[in-house]
């Protein structure tokens, strides 16, 4: 453990955290990274922290981040360390959030109701979310669905990085402002889509039962190990009231059109 000169307590999504460091620059960088990672949900607090993150540099480890005294990450390259911390913090907040259930999922809103597309990174959910936004859906998130006790979903709208025509990934401009401000109470979930890309596949939706839906979303549910009872209760609220479908999908632009047509007809 490092004796710290700089330290501050914050609260994010109900999780009290503390950042501390002997190095003013690393301390500042940590706060900036955290604020960006948590899309501004980082408020100073006097609450006793449950998670203490310590930032430092030594000869053995280079720049390091400790979480409650255990090494979270280290390395010589500062941006690599903070990049990892960015994701690490998001996931830990999602795991320990007391009154929300975080799911790895893309989310868009259609006519005041939400569509969830659970999936891990690199599963193509950002691509599909973006295509749906291009066709008129409202952007909520390409990373987390944040669910409350009533089963409503809240936005986690950060800028999307998308692969452009030249095959490189670049930030893609989406309207991340309106969803933050206009849906403070959250939106009910109308549909949940489990999908995997398969070239030339057809859209053949199989409707899942609520229990099958909960089972299928379990691998993407961040607090499932930390707080399984609460997670399952919230997931049940969602699945009981949503259309849950599974289908392979072809290229995102074509699939997005077919999906929207299907949802328009079905919902």
């Amino acid at each position: 453990m490092t004796a710290s000169t700089y330290g501050q307590n914050f609260i994010s999504f109900g999780v009290p955290v503390r950042f501390e460091s002997r190095n003013a620059r690393l301390f500042q960088k940590a706060i900036e990274t955290a604020d960006r990672a948590l899309i501004g949900n980082l408020t100073p607090t006097r609450k006793r922290p449950e998670h203490i993150f310590t930032f430092g540099r030594d000869k053995e480890r280079g720049i390091f981040v400790e979480h409650n005294g255990d090494l979270a990450t280290c390395g010589e390259i500062e941006r690599g360390v903070f990049k990892y911390f960015d994701s690490y913090l998001r996931v830990r907040i999602g795991e320990y959030c007391p009154n929300r259930v975080f799911i790895h999922s893309g989310v868009v809103a259609l006519d005041g109701k939400a569509l969830l597309i659970p999936g891990n990174s690199f599963s193509g959910k950002s691509t599909l979310v973006l295509e749906l936004v291009r066709l008129g859906a409202e952007y909520f998130s390409d990373e987390f669905a944040i669910l409350d006790e009533q089963g409503n979903v809240h936005p986690y709208a950060r800028p999307i990085n998308m692969r452009t025509d030249d095959g490189k990934y670049r930030p893609y401009t989406v309207d991340v402002g309106s969803s933050k401000t206009s849906h403070r109470a959250g939106l009910p979930v109308a549909a949940v889509l489990f999908t995997k890309y398969k070239e030339s596949s057809r859209f053949r939706p199989k409707i899942l039962s609520p229990a099958e839906g909960i089972m299928s979303v379990t691998p993407f549910t961040l607090p499932i190990r930390v707080n399984p009872a609460y997670s399952i209760r919230v997931l049940q609220q969602v699945m009981n009231n949503a259309l849950i479908i599974r289908s392979k999908r072809t290229h995102a632009p074509r699939f997005a059109q077919i999906l929207l047509q299907y949802l328009n007809d079905f919902l």
């Binding site: 990049k83 994701s87 790895h104 990174s121 692969r163 990934y169």
Partner: peptide, 29 residues
């Protein structure tokens, strides 16, 4: 839960692996 995540770089210079010309701006855990 970390195994399911990744992070996107907003620019090439964010890449934690110096010396490698990054084409994707994405990293996987």
């Amino acid at each position: 839960a970390l195994a399911a995540t990744s992070c996107n770089c907003s620019r090439h210079s964010d890449c934690p692996q110096l010396g490698t010309p990054c084409l994707t701006n994405m990293c996987a855990n």
